[in-house]
Amino acid sequence: MEFLQDLNIKTLFKPEFLNTLLHILIILIAGLIVVRLIAMIVGKTFTKKAGPQMKMLVRKVIVYTGWAVIILAVLSELGVKLSAILGAAGIVGIAVGIASQKSLGSIISGFFLVSDKAFEVGDVIQIGDKVGVVHSIDLLSIKLKTLDNMLVRIPNDEIISSSVTNITRFPIRRMDFSIQVAYRTDLNQAREILLDIARQNPLCLDEPEPFFMFTDFGDSGIGIKFAVWFEKQNFVTVKNSVFPSIKNRFDEAGIEIPFPHTTLYTGEASIPFPVRVVEDDISEEKRSHHDKAAD
């Protein structure tokens, strides 16, 4: 630190100082070039087959390490004793290491995540209850841009222990519809209508074929699982076209989509509980009461 103590206007123009300044400048420029060169060579050779995330992580590690070396070299040139700094850095390192266990865990998890290739920047993923487009994969966390345009930061160590669903990994997807039809429905007709809806909709893929299955005898009707395949980017359009088509075509064919209801029987199957409208009787009764009161 003697250098800093001796720093005054006179010393600024001494040849030693200018010499040191020149050395620092050379170290900075040469260091920057070397770091960039190493990052470029590694990027083009060792990580040639790696994905963009791995490339980004390796590049960041090289750049940060390179800058650390450059800073140490500059400090050394300024007359700072590196042994003391490195000794102190060792102690600080232990302290920081203990304090930043989670962060270190996240960094290591980040490497595992990237090598796992479960998702890439631009994929739509679901982690827990969060769904969004992968905005960036960084050393400590990934950032998700949610569908309502919010940025969610999720630490890497949290992701590594959670299940991740990659919604857009494959180019085509299947959309499932759970439908109920009334018990009196002609099931073959319902099946034909649903398959025809898929055939008529140009966004529904012909192959793989639409899926159709009767699922259960429910409380209110017979359950059907109907599924169509589509290109992943057409999710909303397919949903918004198939959904009303089912309702409209069922309405046209007189097929009822039942809501939960209960039919009461008087002990004999298929004969419903007798209900008598008594409104007229009540009115009659009220009228006679009124007449009596008037008398």
Partner: peptide
């Protein structure tokens, strides 16, 4: 308007 279809395996 031709409908789309998938040819080959999923990947």
């Amino acid at each position: 308007m031709l409908s789309s279809t998938w040819f080959g395996d999923m990947k």
